[in-house]
Structure formats: C-alpha cells, structure tokens
Simulated assay, not measured.
Amino acid sequence: MDPDWDEYKDGVAGKKGYVFGTEYQLFDGTNDIGKKGFGDWDVPCSVCRTEGASSTLMIPGKTKCSDSWKREYSGYLMSGHANHVAATQYICVDRDFEKVPGSSANKNGALLYPIEARCGSLPCKPYVEGRELTCVVCSK
C-alpha cells in the first residue's frame, strides 16, 4: 500500500509487463475446494515468515512435511488458468484462505484457479485425473 518509486515515466505504454491485483476464481458448484463464496474476491498479499528457520519449501501434492521439517501451513495448489496467456506460477494458498473485505468486483486482472492433475507425463497412479492438488509449506 506504500510503493517506492525509482526512475519512471507515467502513462500506459506498449511492450511492457503489467502487474494486476489477483482474484479468486472459486465459485460455488464449480471449484468446490476450501471455503465457499470466494468467486471474484481479491486475494490479500501475504508473507510466510518463520522464526529461526533458514529454509522454506513448498511441496505440491502433499499436506504434511517430512519428519525433520516443520509445517507452516497446507492448502491448495493454485495458479492462472491453463488457457490464459498471462505469466503465472504455482502457489500454495492456505486452506484457510482469506479475502480482501469489500473487494468482490469482477475486474479480471490476475486470476487464481485450483490446479488439477492431468495424466500423461504425470503418472495416473498415484495421481488421479481431474483431482485438485494440495500443497504444504515447510520450514527448517
């Protein structure tokens, strides 16, 4: 909410990247994971900070950490839609995700969708075609 600026030129220009706010694309009856009623709500920014840990690791497809690691949180693997051309990365969204109050306007900047397993180069045993993937963030 308080950006620092360096050298810049005001105005929209071509051939640049853009940064957007992000909305959940979790509509009741469509993407039934986690909490309900989060379609088009803005995603708040967050930072995973750990006391005394020097490493953090996000592990897709898991809900627990190995014995020598501490679980910070677990939830659902999410990213932009597979058919969208915007740059994106997989992120682990806490299963107790939150929304920005009063932000339910559909502005379609960056959009977060649950990630499903697709069989092929990803083996369908142990993975299941179409099943939403979990994730865990661990520290050590």
Rank of each mutant, 00 (worst) to 15 (best):
E72F: 05
D10T: 15
C124A: 03
A105E: 15
K15W: 05
A110H: 11
F38C: 13
D4Y: 05
S46V: 11
V100T: 13
V47G: 04
I115V: 15
G39F: 08
G14N: 11
P126L: 09
D6E: 13
C138P: 02
K9M: 13
R49E: 15
I115G: 02
R49G: 14
E7Q: 12
V43G: 02
A13M: 09
T50S: 12
Y73C: 05
G130R: 00
S74A: 09
L111N: 06
A87Y: 02
A105S: 13
P126R: 07
R131H: 12
V19T: 07
R95W: 05
C135H: 02
C135A: 08
L26N: 02
G75Q: 04
K125E: 10
A110P: 01
C92G: 02
V12C: 07
L111T: 08
W69H: 05
E23Q: 15
S121G: 04
Y90I: 12
S46E: 09
A117E: 03
K140H: 02
S139N: 02
F27L: 11
Y18I: 14
Y8R: 12
E132G: 03
Y127F: 15
F27R: 11
L111R: 03
V100E: 07
V12A: 13
C48S: 12
Y8H: 14
E129T: 04
D6A: 15
L112E: 01
H81V: 09
C138W: 00
T22F: 00
N106P: 00
K99L: 10
C65W: 02
K140D: 07
V100L: 09
D4V: 14
